[in-house]
Amino acid sequence: MSIEILQPGLSTTIQDSGRNGYQKHGVVVGGAMDPFALRMGNLLVGNEEGAAVIEATLIGPKLLFHEDHLIAISGGDLSPKISGKPVPSWRPVWVKAGSVLAFGHAQKGCRAYVAIAGGIDVPIVMGSRSTYVRAKLGGLEGRALKAGDRIPIGKTNADCFSLDKKGDAPFSTVSWSIGENAIPSYENRSVRTIGGPEFKDFTEESQTRFYEDEFQIAPQSDRMGYRLSGPDLQLKKPKEQISEAVSAGTIQVPPGGSPIILLADRQTTGGYPKIGYVATIDLPILAQKKPGDTLRFQNITVKEAQHALLLRERAINQLKCSIKLMKTGGFKRV
């Protein structure tokens, strides 16, 4: 069972829930930039929530299915089509052998995910199949996918949808999908942010501007982090900073005054002042922002951030139950 890459797209990699537990060895966590899209895609095809999927960035790949596969596309809208017909996202889709799934340009968001029933079966390196290109780890030979690659797919979980697999249509799907209100508001320009340990060390002016002004995502932004342009953020006086661990969402400010938000492929440690932390709940929104997009930081407490996570988890649990129910229900061709 394998899927062939006909065109790789801009930056297409294999990602899962990340390489957890190895930061003490200096190994980056990595994993899907949009953890919500990863979980949902996998749930929709009956996989483990953290199974390996394809992550496409801005310009998606062209994939040839050599066998029949159950897939789900989630995350940003990179205009996926099979035989010229748009493929709906956030729902299970049965793809016929010989079909080509082609992504176009980004309509909404920045990163799309393709989950395939059975999961992508590349070797596990330090507990994860995630690709970390800088250290040539995981994924397919530790690199971004390229034309001619064959992506191995694991054995399909028996607990999988029985879609209408007959007929000659290149794909078939269901009439339901994950509801719009359950999906993070990718268009939202405001991300919830917890104040960092050095927030108080910035000038009053910088503190005010940080929460009131808009920042723009600079072109040199990638999976490692987003560089922002906006108001100049300066410390009251230079401060000797000792390197320590950082997290996904940490907003650090180098002496130049332009903040950097650290993301999936961040280094494990950092030595710049930390003005804040983007709350975990809004990391999917960040993952879907592209260079040129603007954002604002909205101040919340740790308690509020954790409360928001608990509420989302409850919603996801409800979605899990609904998906289970739908599996036993009937399916309609579209």
């Binding site: 930061q23 003490k24 000792i242 661990a245 494990t268």
Partner: peptide, 21 residues
């Protein structure tokens, strides 16, 4: 607990807030 990361003067401890809750 998900993992810990020793630093020069600190230890960072990562956790899953849902599991803890």
């Amino acid at each position: 607990m998900t993992e810990y990361v020793p630093g020069f003067t600190t230890v960072a401890v990562f956790y899953d807030p849902i599991k803890i809750y």
